[in-house]
Computed example of a mutant assay.
Amino acid sequence: MSVKIRILYNPTVRPAKQMMVIGSKGQKISLWTTPEKFDFEHVPSFGEVTREGKMPFTRMTAPGLREVSFSHPVANLSFERNINDPIWKLQKLIRTGQKVRFTNGPNLFASTVWFNVISFRIEIKQLSGHNQISFAVLHWKIKQAVDSPALIKKKAAKKAKPKPRKTTKKKPKKQVQRTYKIKKGDSLFKIAAKQLGRGSRWPEIWKLNKKAIPNPNRIKVGKTIKLPKK
C-alpha cells in the first residue's frame, strides 16, 4: 500500500509560516511540516487538607503548567534520499536538555513561553534504498518550563548593572588647640621642655600668647595659655 505525504522534506524549499523550534542557546530548526493536531492541557494543581472524621478540604495550590503533545511527519518519497539531517538536528537539540519555544504555531504555544521536552519519539514509517530513514513521524510531549526563584534572582543579578559607588572625600579632622594651665614655679622654658620636648622652643609659646603674656619673663599662675603643635 502506498502512502502519500502532503508536504515533503526538501532542504532547499521551506514553506512560509512553517513552525520553527528555537533552543535556549539560540538554535533555530524547522519542523519541516506543521502539525495538524495538538493535545493541550493547562489545569491548576489541587491539594487536600485532611479533617478527622470528615471529608478533606480541597484547594488550588498552584496555577499549573502548560502541557502540549503533537506529532508531525518528516518525509521524502524518494527511496534514494533520507531525512537523517533534520531528525539529527532535532535530536541533538533535545539531548542537550535545552528549553525550547516555537514560532508560527497556535496561540497555545505563545512563542514567548519556554518548554521542557519531556518526550521525543521517532516512529519510522519507511526506509530508503540504503536502509536510511526516508519517512518518519515525530511525536513530541512538552511541558512549560519555569525557573526556580533562586535561579531567577541569580539571572536578574547578572543582568542588573552594578551601581556606581559614591566616593565621598573624607573631611580632614579639625585639630583641637592644645592648652596648658600655668602652675607655680613654671617658666616658658620649663613649659616648652615638658610639653614640646625642648626648652629652646619657648619663643613659639610666647608668640601664640603675646596678648596674654606681654612680658615672657612674667607669667601669671593659673592662667591658661595656648601650646603649638608638637
Rank of each mutant, 00 (worst) to 15 (best):
S2K: 11
V3S: 05
K4I: 01
I5K: 00
R6T: 03
R6W: 02
R6S: 06
R6P: 00
Y9D: 06
N10W: 00
N10C: 07
N10G: 08
P11Y: 05
P11V: 06
R14Y: 07
P15A: 00
A16I: 01
A16S: 12
A16F: 05
K17V: 02
K17A: 06
V21S: 08
I22K: 05
I22E: 12
G23A: 10
S24Y: 06
S24K: 05
K25V: 02
K28T: 10
K28W: 09
I29W: 02
S30I: 01
L31Q: 01
T33G: 03
K37T: 10
F38P: 02
V43P: 02
P44G: 09
P44F: 02
G47P: 02
R51N: 14
G53K: 13
F57D: 15
M60D: 05
T61Q: 11
A62Q: 07
G64R: 04
R66H: 08
S69P: 03
V74G: 05
S78Q: 10
S78P: 05
F79N: 03
R81C: 04
R81Q: 13
I83T: 09
D85Y: 09
D85A: 09
P86F: 04
I87A: 08
I87M: 12
L90V: 01
K92P: 02
T103N: 13
T103F: 13
G105H: 05
P106S: 06
P106N: 10
F109V: 02
F109M: 04
A110Q: 11
S111K: 15
T112M: 10
T112H: 15
W114S: 11
F115Y: 14
I118T: 15
S119N: 14
R121E: 14
E123S: 08
I124M: 07
I124D: 12
Q126A: 04
S128Y: 06
G129D: 12
G129C: 01
G129Q: 08
G129E: 05
F135A: 06
F135Q: 03
F135T: 01
A136P: 00
V137R: 04
H139M: 03
H139I: 00
K141V: 08
K141I: 00
Q144R: 08
V146Q: 10
D147A: 15
P149S: 15
P149Q: 06
A150H: 10
L151K: 15
K153D: 15
K155L: 15
K155E: 14
K155I: 12
A157Q: 15
K158F: 11
K159Q: 13
A160W: 08
A160F: 10
P162A: 12
R165C: 02
T167P: 01
K170L: 14
K174E: 12
V176R: 15
R178Y: 08
R178P: 05
R178S: 15
T179V: 11
Y180R: 03
G185C: 04
S187W: 07
L188S: 06
K190R: 11
A193C: 06
K194Q: 07
K194W: 09
Q195N: 08
L196N: 09
G197Q: 09
R198T: 03
R201M: 14
R201D: 11
P203H: 11
I205M: 13
W206I: 01
K207D: 14
K207M: 14
N209S: 08
N209V: 03
K210D: 02
A212W: 03
A212L: 14
N215G: 07
N215E: 12
P216L: 03
N217P: 01
V221R: 09
K223Y: 02
T224R: 11
T224E: 12
P228Q: 07
P228D: 05
K229R: 10
K230T: 11
